[in-house]
Each structure stands twice: as C-alpha cells, then as structure tokens.
C-alpha cells in the first residue's frame, strides 16, 4: 500500500503509523455513554473511511487521509 503525503509525496506504507478518528453516533447522547463508545466501540466500516496517519519515517506530521478498507489497495488524501 502507498500513502500519499501532502508534504512528502507517495510513500510506502511502513513509514506510517495508523490512528483512528473515533466517530460516536449522534444517537448516543448520554455523556458517559459517549465516552465509553469513544474508548471501545468502532464503526469498523467496510468501505471508505477518514483516518489520521502519522508520517513517522518522513515529515513526522499527522495527516488525514481517506482509505478504502474493502480492498486495501491505495489511499488518497482528503485533507492535509
């Protein structure tokens, strides 16, 4: 897998550290329940997701990318 860094260009996957952006559903309104959901539960989407990736062996910056979890082929930038 190649991840496109807005600062460094196309970079191999093993330069990166994955970080999730937790999405708590709006239907959960109780503050404690929202905390529990953020800590443990996941959308685990099969398809396109927005994620934070840290370019550890590159510019050492966090970037937000979109990735298709159903095929794992290639990621493109959503926002740098």
């Amino acid at each position: 897998m190649i991840i496109t860094c807005p600062h460094c260009g196309d970079r191999p996957f093993d330069e990166w550290v994955h970080g999730e952006i937790p999405v708590v559903p709006d239907t959960i309104t109780d503050p404690d329940e929202r905390d529990i959901d953020r800590a443990y539960f996941h959308n685990n989407t099969e398809g396109v997701v927005r994620e934070a990736w840290f370019h550890l062996a590159g510019c050492r910056r966090w970037v937000v990318i979109t990735r298709d979890t159903s095929n794992g082929v290639r990621s493109d930038i959503a926002r740098g």
Binding site: E20, H42, E51, R67, T69, S70, G72
Partner: peptide, 12 residues
C-alpha cells in the same frame, strides 16, 4: 496494524 477487510497477502 490498520483495520481492513482485504484478503490480499504481501511478501513484506
């Protein structure tokens, strides 16, 4: 390390 439903295998 990242979630995925892909069953592709790599040589890495």
């Amino acid at each position: 390390p990242e979630p995925s439903y892909s069953r592709r295998a790599g040589h890495h």
